[in-house]
């Protein structure tokens, strides 16, 4: 694993050694790394974004759900839960979809909102490789660290409009969102 610092040190993440890094990702996309080519199979990849989010965490994620369902073919949302992300309150979603090349892909996305900056880490792999490649991708997700003190040093983002990540997707738990006890997700993003 190689540790990469992104967005002026606001985010750091471990990425698998030997993966190819995109040289010029779009604005807001801080990192794209892709596993080496394998016989035309879908290449597992990690994408980290840091964007200005001028809305609540719940509204941001509800909008993301609508966007993903509208943009991705054969999209199926499978799981959604609150959990710490990068040491901050956040959430994780699991979904599957089909690529334009008709490959089945499973994507896990971890997201959090800190001082108006939304951070997402998306880890995608071929569905039939999820039991193996998914584990390695999760290691990267668990290595994600966010340092709020670097907020001002990030890329050209607007002034943060919120300082907390409010409740999302209705009350989902009566215990800490640490995965150690009974938690719940809800189907409705109320």
């Amino acid at each position: 694993m190689t540790i990469l610092e992104l967005a002026g040190g606001f985010v750091s993440v471990d990425v698998p050694d030997g993966w190819e890094q995109a040289s010029d990702p779009y604005p807001g996309i801080e990192l794209v790394v892709v596993e080496p080519e394998q016989d035309g199979l879908f290449r597992a990849n990690l994408v980290v974004t840091v964007t200005d989010v001028a809305m609540s965490f719940g509204d941001w994620q509800k909008g993301t759900d609508v966007f993903l369902a509208g943009e991705l073919h054969d999209y199926l949302l499978l799981d959604l839960e609150r959990m710490p992300v990068g040491g901050h309150p956040g959430a994780r979603r699991l979904a599957t979809h089909a690529t334009a090349e008709n490959q089945s892909v499973t994507v896990q996305q971890w997201m959090t909102l800190i001082n108006g900056r939304g951070v997402t880490l998306s880890a995608s792999c071929g569905t039939l490789a999820f039991a193996t490649a998914g584990v390695e991708l999760e290691r990267s997700a668990h290595s994600l660290r966010i340092n709020p003190s670097h907020t001002a040093a990030g890329s050209a983002l607007g002034t943060p409009s919120r300082t907390t990540a409010p409740a999302l997707y209705a009350p989902v738990t009566d215990t800490p969102p640490d995965g150690s006890s009974q938690t719940s997700t809800t189907g409705g993003a109320s």
Binding site: D74, S104, T127, L128, Q182, S184, T186
Partner: peptide, 22 residues
Amino acid sequence: GTEFVPTLVARMTRLGLRPHLG
């Protein structure tokens, strides 16, 4: 497509968001 068999099963069984039981 064979790689879509898990998705097929998920759709036929309505696998999706559920509360996480203890």
